[in-house]
Design a protein around this nucleic acid. Structure first.
Lengths: 223, 223
DNA sequence: TCTAAAAAGATAGTAATACTATTATAGAAA
DNA sequence: TTTCTATAATAGTATTACTATCTTTTTAGA
């Protein structure tokens, strides 16, 4: 059985729905590749237009600016991650196993098994690690937040907090622990790759190291 | 007794030492205020030049670009923070109290008591919270790292990891816990202010909330 | 089927940004 | 006094981040 999961991203993230046309889909797909390649600061709509053989103005018809494209990509990712968490937790009874699955999902690339996917998994994963905090670390975070731009992130955070609450009902900080796990899954992987002295990584790969650190931490915190 | 502590920031962070002239000091001081006011993305050397009544070219003679100015400010901050940690830990015998002091320092503005200070404490604190991860989340992090741009951060991290190690010698991830505490001190405060549903803040202020969450977490992890 | 509207995309701009190169000036050394 | 050097001011350029307008294509109704 092959299947495809798609998500309706909040329509305030775009001017025109990129899923509604071939060129719209190319903007997102090649946008992911180019942001990965150049980094968000050096990425421009002009460069993306050259890449997909269209013009800047065409891209502006889909996204107000590059920050909105980043938000679109991350909203898609957060929605997908919440779906994956829900999907993988099906029929898993004990909360300990559920928490292990969550940590694994947060620290690894999107799995092959979860339906066909039009985006490059590796590039998407690296964008999430390196660029996702730039989605909210902006001066107009409050205005963007009012447009529900962080709803999928909050939903994912709430879902994980729910499992934390089920595992340790008396624990006072389930949401903060949840957002800390998500953020640390990114920062620890980034540090393990680029600034390893900020971590305890040995030769292992960043994903496995981060998973071990966070799993150990979580069960020490929650008992 | 009034005293002033200054730090020699790594000379690769600047073209010409801003401490060497009046205008250099104005660049850093007003740079902090303007980055706070506009956010790092909207901050430009042109705007700073207008503010301090000089020209862009003059500022470029001190800093290669605005990212280097940010690195300079953060290097200064990290060095100061390491000094403060060292200073405040003097004569504190038990490691539990030491860790509490560290969490308090990481989650609050620079204290008044620690010598006179030419920079706006509030603005500096907000920059550290909102902009510090942009210092390393860049495509050329490896090149910048070779220039020792993150040495003060690593030193601070190592110092805290040392106290963690003294408190819990068998704990396997002292450095990762240390960098996670530093990073979470920022992200949880940011979330508490702008995206509170990602945290468990009640009415309390962001600093106090974050301190409580991190202190609780740390002692659950380390016993 | 034809026409009209509306949607999409290409072209051509502009103001601001991120620099660089050149020129001018002021002080120190010979 | 002259010359050297350090510093800043002036004036540029290429790129970025858009906007406005025009042309073409698609779609919908008569």
């Amino acid at each position: 059985m092959d299947f495809q999961v798609t998500f309706r991203v909040n329509e305030k993230m775009y001017v025109k729905d990129p899923e509604s046309s071939e060129i719209g889909r190319a903007i997102v797909k090649h946008g992911i590749d180019l942001i990965y390649e150049l980094g968000f600061e050096s990425f421009t709509f002009k460069k993306l237009a050259v890449e997909i053989e269209t013009t800047e103005a065409t891209i502006y018809r889909y996204f107000e600016n590059k920050h909105r494209l980043l938000l679109y990509i991350l909203n898609w990712y957060w929605s997908y991650m919440e779906f994956l968490v829900m999907f993988r937790l099906q029929n898993v009874k004990d909360t300990r196993s559920q928490l292990k699955i969550i940590v694994h999902l947060l620290t690894h690339e999107l799995p092959e098994s979860s339906g066909s996917l039009d985006y490059n998994r590796k590039h998407l994963n690296q964008i999430v690690i390196s660029e996702s905090s730039k989605a909210y670390l902006v001066k107009d975070v409050n205005a963007i937040n009012k447009e529900q731009a962080f709803k999928p992130y909050k939903d994912l955070c709430a879902k994980i907090a729910e499992v934390i609450g089920a595992h340790a009902p008396k624990y006072k900080f389930p949401r903060s622990l949840s957002s800390m796990l998500i953020e640390s899954a990114h920062s620890q992987q980034f540090f393990a790759s680029h600034l390893p002295r900020l971590t305890d990584v040995q030769s292992k790969n960043q994903s496995e190291f981060t998973a071990q650190f966070l799993e150990d931490l979580m069960f020490r915190v929650l008992g």
